[in-house]
Design a protein around this nucleic acid. Structure first.
Lengths: 117, 117
DNA sequence: GAAAGTACATACAAAATTGTAGGATACTAA
DNA sequence: TTAGTATCCTACAATTTTGTATGTACTTTC
């Protein structure tokens, strides 16, 4: 990122930096997605029911909705096994894995600052 | 945030206590905060009107609301100069500056992935 | 003396997000 | 026959977030 700008015009780098952040934000913001991604980063592959158990308080509807959005953004893969009862697993896609550094930074910052309040 | 009485809030507090990511998310999520912080990281100190101009499309109400929330979370400082017409500047606090690595990672990821779709 | 600039505030409304309740499927075990 | 399991779906309702419109205090400029 850049240093102080003395004029009131916004330069290209600034706009792009902000655009990048705004795009990432639009993909990740909301109450559940980051947690879903974090669990998948941690445990590689999780079943629907395993995710449901880890995400304390999430409704089945929200879990489905958010999993679908994450698939639509190509951040996770859905692996469906044709069995009865059904078995479906989720894992990070390549694009999803590329979020690792963001997730790690957010986790570190959170654990460091969560208690201070 | 939801009412304290709802079961969801209880679960949210649990998540915040147990998971750094959830805490960080609860502090940063929403449409504007990350952009506000990014501009302040870039330009060190900005007046209210300068922020308003950079955050294309934000209403004055939202800007005030979000600036107050960021102050309440001790991420930014408000510097009021006793002049007429009023002059108020905002800057990152120490805690706000500690978000730098998150902001940079999100900016990088966004600019890298935004065009691909 | 009317307009314009600053940094807000307030009431209200629209939109987005999240939640609740119930059901569908389709096989399997009792 | 009845109940159980895992994954997901749909209608609808509550909650949260964001937006619109308007006002305020004060002073300089036209």
């Amino acid at each position: 990122m850049r240093k102080t700008a003395s004029t009131n015009t916004i330069n290209k780098e600034q706009l792009e930096a902000n655009c990048g952040i705004a795009y990432t934000n639009s993909i990740l913001s909301g109450r559940w997605k980051l947690s879903i991604l974090a669990f998948l980063l941690d445990e590689k592959k999780l079943r629907y029911s395993e995710l449901r158990n880890r995400l304390t308080g999430i409704s089945e509807r929200m879990l489905i909705v958010k999993l679908k959005e994450l698939q639509a953004d190509d951040l996770i893969n859905r692996i469906s096994h044709p069995e009865v009862p059904p078995r479906v697993e989720y894992e990070l896609s390549k694009k999803g894995k590329s979020l690792e550094s963001i997730l790690i930074e957010m986790s570190k910052w959170g654990t460091k600052n969560a208690t201070k309040k």
